[in-house]
Structures are given as C-alpha cells and as structure tokens.
C-alpha cells in the first residue's frame, strides 16, 4: 500500500517534470547539441591535447606540461606575444578615442547625421574583408599611394610600411583604428542618453568645456566605455585576417606581424603540431580571461551605473 503510494508520487513527480521540461528542452535541443559536441567537448579535448604531442596521424602522446614549458622558451612565441600586445594596447585605445571623438562631434546636433553616421560606418562594414586587407597592403607598401602622396606633397621619403619590420605592425593598427564605426554608433546612442540639464546646470556653474567633458560626459558614458572596451579587447586579441593577408600568411617581415593567432595557425595547421597549438590556444584563453577580469575588477572604481550597478 505504502509502496505503491510512493511510486505513484514518484511517477506524478516525473510526469510533472516531463510536462514542465519537454517542450523547452526541445527548443534548446540544437543548442545543446552544439554546446556539448562543438564547444565543451572540443574544449576538454584541446585541454587534453595541450598536454600531449599530436600530429593527427599518430596517436597522441602524453608529455605533461612540456608544451607549456616550451612556449616560454620559444622565441617566436614570445615574439607573437609582443606583437599581439603591441597591437592590442595601441589599437584598442586609439580606436575608442577616435570613436568617442567623432561621436561627440556628430552629437552636436549636426544636420544630416544619418548620412555621416553611414560614411563613418562604411569602413567597419567592409574592413574585415580580405579585399580591404589586400588594398591596405598595396596602399601602405613601398611605392603605394600613401608614400607617393607624402613624397609629392610634403617631400617626405617615407619608409615602406609593409615590408619594413620596424613599421609593418603600424599599418595593421591603422587598419583596425580605421574601423571605429561600431564603437562610434554605440557611443552615439550613449551620448543621447545623457540628460541635457546636466550640461546646462554645469554651464550655469561656470564649468568649462574640459570640466564638462571629464565631470559629466566621461562618468555618464562610463558603462558604454566599459562595454566597448571589453568587446574590443576580446576581439583584438583574436585578430587574424589583416595580419595574414598583409604579411602574405607568414607574419613577416622577420616575424614583425606574427600575431598570436597567426602563429597558432602555423603551428597547428601548417606544421601539424596540434598539441603545441592547443597549449597556445589555452594560453590565449588565459590571457583574455586575465584582462577581462582586470577590467571587470576595476570597473567599480570607474564605471558609474545610474541604478547603482543593479
């Protein structure tokens, strides 16, 4: 008697569970397949591979932390870190500064705002393509348009921005900064949220332009700055196409544009050192996680949420 009541309750419970969950989980089915088969599964697998030697043809061989130790001794890996950090720390701030400056300019109640917004967005729309990277290579290269222009107008004999290892990375940074359109649109939306009364009140108090910028615009915009910073930083660490195309796939000249992801690609898919490349991938994840954590951790000191962060 007791037994059957219990089993009855269990079956009722299971029925309820089924009724509540069957349809929602059906809707989530594609995502579940994707997240387990194509994200979590491969992540575990690449973590494992990072402790092995693996070339896809012979079975993987466990070598402990050797890949990670090798990374620290690998001058090309260190070079790729240096290139990537230079790129990230130059391009992200410059891009955001440009985006904010132009957004503020356009926010002055200029007529035909949609037209200008379009013009400034077009480089972002097209810039990720191979076509533009190819164009960049030709424009910044020796005998390219930029240098001919500098020579004929200012009489400056400029270096070859693509094949001179000292400058090659700058052409890629310029390409990234050029694509400030998305950040600009986000800043514009943020600027429109700032109540005009704040500016008017501070003008009455006699605050100058600089004061207003640092005491009103920046604090009020800080959540948007925070957001843009996180997105751009994560994206920048993973930059691949411009470096690949502009350097002809090699990261040259003499590894001066050997981006992290480019080196990872070479190791994994040109030399088939897949264990080493997996270790590099996890290294990248850790680097990105650290920087994201730093931004999140410091956010309480510089990001103002109107609703107290809730």
């Amino acid at each position: 008697m007791k037994q059957s009541a219990k089993s009855n309750r269990t079956s009722m419970y299971l029925k309820g569970l089924w009724k509540k969950n069957a349809v929602p989980y059906l809707f989530l089915l594609p995502w579940f397949l994707g997240v387990f088969a194509l994200t979590i599964g491969p992540m575990i697998s690449s973590l494992y591979l990072s402790f092995t030697q693996y070339d896809m043809l012979t079975p993987s061989k466990w070598i402990g932390t050797e890949n990670y130790a090798r990374m620290l001794d690998d001058p090309r890996y260190m070079q790729s870190l240096k290139v990537t950090f230079t790129y990230v720390f130059a391009s992200v701030p410059l891009k955001l500064i440009f985006a904010l400056a132009v957004a503020m300019l356009l926010n002055k109640g200029i007529r035909a705002l949609p037209l200008y917004r379009t013009v400034y967005y077009i480089p972002t729309l097209l810039g990720g393509s191979v076509a533009i990277a190819v164009l960049w290579r030709k424009m910044f290269g020796g005998g390219g348009v930029l240098n001919e222009f500098l020579l004929s107008v200012f009489g400056i004999q400029a270096p070859d921005w693509v094949s001179n290892p000292k400058y090659a990375i700058y052409s890629i940074i310029a390409l990234t900064v050029w694509q400030f359109g998305s950040s600009m649109i986000i800043f514009l939306a943020g600027l429109k949220q700032i109540p005009m009364e704040l500016y008017e009140a501070s003008q009455v108090d006699g605050a100058g332009r600089m004061r207003r910028f640092f005491n009103i615009t920046i604090p009020m915009l800080s959540p948007v700055i925070f957001f843009n910073l996180v997105i751009q930083l994560i994206t920048a660490f993973q930059a691949f196409t411009p470096a690949f195309i502009i350097s002809g796939g090699k990261g040259g000249p003499i590894d001066s544009t050997l981006f992290y992801t480019l080196y990872l690609y070479q190791k994994g898919f040109a030399f088939f050192e897949m264990g080493y490349a997996s270790a590099m991938a996890w290294g990248l994840l850790v680097i990105i996680a650290i920087f994201t954590a730093i931004i999140f951790g410091t956010s309480k000191y510089w990001v103002n949420y109107a609703d107290g962060g809730k």
Partner: peptide, 10 residues
C-alpha cells in the same frame, strides 16, 4: 566570450 581557438583544433 570564449575565443574559438580553444575549440578549433579538436
């Protein structure tokens, strides 16, 4: 937020 590089090899 995950960089796809940690899944691309497997």
């Amino acid at each position: 937020m995950l960089p796809h590089h940690v899944t691309v090899i497997p």
